[in-house]
Design a protein around this nucleic acid. Structure first.
Lengths: 162, 162
DNA sequence: GAAACCACCTTGAGTTTGCAACCGGTTGGA
DNA sequence: TCCAACCGGTTGCAAACTCAAGGTGGTTTC
């Protein structure tokens, strides 16, 4: 694949500079969906199946996802994050923080971005360890950032102030 | 404009989730190009003029750039960053950091990403103050991050180790 | 008065997107 | 043994977008 330039920002954009790739990664990262059907059904933006199929293949080709069969279900395919996509956590946090500040998201979806921003590098590291446990068979971490995000989201959905 | 969802990451993607918008912002932010011609000529990825025209208009419409005529040259247009696009500095730093780590950029272009990552929030804040001075008539800051990046880039281009 | 420069537009071919319907194979329950 | 539900996708199609090349009308400089 010919690169437009060797600039790091450009290389990042060439990898997932479109309107869907990061959405798919977000769903796998925060939404716990790991299969084609789960991603298709769980996506709130309403991704089309052909676009999802294309992006999953592309992300696997770029090394941001790995693809393995489920031993129990011969036709089920499970997608996992890789070290490269887990490395996107800080960038996701910053993107969420920007959207939170300048684009007025819905409150219950914005709370996760706020927690992720406020937590800073320490929380990102804990979350990345958790993702390594879930996707790369890393050791089980003491802290569950996923649980904290989930709890805050549910509280917010009930209309509480966090 | 109908939003696909209220998720902050999605809203961010809807604003500049394509292969060129951030490239244009990068050139204005780090490359000091402020006019159509300068952006067209200075862009190392070879952006086409119609794409540049489209993205400039779109970025202005989204509030990421402002557009003003040059009093000295009636037909010259000068584009400036806004508070919202200056707020992208941390995200740009993170994107550069990811590209640096996982995409092996060219050394002379990678050095800026490394400096920006290593500098952390303190350096980002200094850079943002400098951009406010250059684009929003803010007070002149004591530190010139732009100069530091430039110096490092030139040293790297000469083959020195930084 | 001519040449260079200015922001941007037009054209036309090729690519990508989004939607809806569909596919053959697998699984779990009756 | 049958069947409905589920599995990861694929196909056809129209609309939208992308791109390079070349051009536009006007302004500034020499």
């Amino acid at each position: 694949m010919p690169r437009r330039s060797g600039c790091p920002i450009n290389l990042t954009l060439e990898t997932f500079g479109d309107r869907w790739s990061l959405i798919v990664l977000r769903d796998i990262m925060f939404g716990k969906a790991r299969t084609f059907r789960a991603l298709l059904a769980g996506n709130i933006e309403g991704i089309a199946s052909n676009i999802l199929a294309d992006r999953l293949a592309r992300l696997v080709a770029h090394g941001l996802l790995s693809r393995q069969g489920d031993p129990a279900h011969s036709q089920r395919v499970i997608y996992s994050l890789t070290e490269a996509s887990i490395g996107l956590v800080p960038m996701m946090a910053m993107m969420g923080a920007w959207g939170l500040r300048y684009r007025s998201p819905s409150p219950e979806l914005g709370i996760r971005a706020r927690l992720l921003e406020d937590g800073g590098p320490e929380l990102w590291a804990a979350f990345m360890d958790e993702l390594r446990h879930l996707h790369l068979a890393g050791p089980e971490p003491a802290r569950s950032v996923m649980g904290e995000l989930q709890t805050a989201f549910q509280a917010m959905s009930r209309g509480e102030t966090v």
